[in-house]
Design a protein around this nucleic acid. Structure first.
Lengths: 147, 147
DNA sequence: GTGGGTGCAAACAATTTGCAAGTCG
DNA sequence: CGACTTGCAAATTGTTTGCACCCAC
């Protein structure tokens, strides 16, 4: 799913030229599970790609969104955040650990859409729904790791 | 619910001094149904309060969040947006008109929480859930008002 | 070869900070 | 009066833009 040739094919299909920068940025975007900013990706990859410029990361991520290789993600901080996971999925915000993790659940999605369909909200055509689950992480390791 | 004395009481309860700026900003925040930025509120009130500074609006809104008189809101643009409505409620993003409107539905909220409770996600303690409904506005007036 | 892509730096936008002056309690 | 709040301006942070050079196709 994230192999090099796979990424190359996606870029081509999207009508984009295959460049080293795009491969690296897309790979980093896939790998980072919590929804990264341009800055974050830049930091991740610049060690192995010292000539990479932050501006390019911005432009590239925007381009990915434009051609539907990625999407923008809602966030409470006021930073642009991206996500390579295009499938409908929900987000769990772990408030105590500040993590954002994906939660995919077709059944729940259908349940909600069914419910809203019955409600028949007027003047509005629902395209999709996304659930944000606010939670705390319960992790034994946490209390121990305070050291 | 939004009377002057009412707001004053809320400020006092929150341990904040009552100042003209805070009254005006809080009132504007309550009144604006779509989730405003500091800039937006500043523009709304500066006509009647020419000495108000944008920096104060920022500081005041942050302060309101700090004392739970308001909360930060998720947004796709990368702007800080606020909301005086503290009750659990869902957001409908009207993608074509860029509006964000509130959608309160206790029944739906319960439905979702019930479902998730049965799922029993491990290592996670759910605090609340919020639904984002992406939709398009269907409005006859729209097509006419193109002029 | 050429059109799109990159790197760099400057411009821009939104927010934050520092501080002197003002005001609520 | 004293601590908190404000207004102003400068600083910071994050993103965008312009443009000469470069390279994938």
């Amino acid at each position: 799913m994230g192999s090099l040739t796979d990424i190359q094919e996606k870029l081509t299909q999207a009508g984009l030229k295959i460049t080293h920068q795009r491969l690296v940025i897309y790979e980093a975007l896939i790998k980072s599970m919590s929804h990264p900013t341009a800055e974050y990706i830049y930091e991740k990859i610049k060690k192995k790609n010292p000539s990479m410029s932050l501006g390019t990361v911005h432009k590239t991520l925007d381009k990915f969104v434009e051609v539907d290789l990625a999407k923008k993600v809602l966030s409470v901080d006021h930073l642009k955040r991206f996500d390579a996971n295009l499938a409908h999925h929900n987000h769990i915000y772990l408030e105590n650990s500040k993590e954002i993790i994906d939660y995919h659940d077709e059944e729940l999605q259908d349940l909600i859409l069914e419910y809203l369909k019955k409600k028949d909200l007027k003047n509005i055509k629902i395209k999709d729904v996304q659930l944000q689950i606010n939670a705390d992480k319960i992790d034994q390791k946490l209390s121990v790791s305070i050291k």
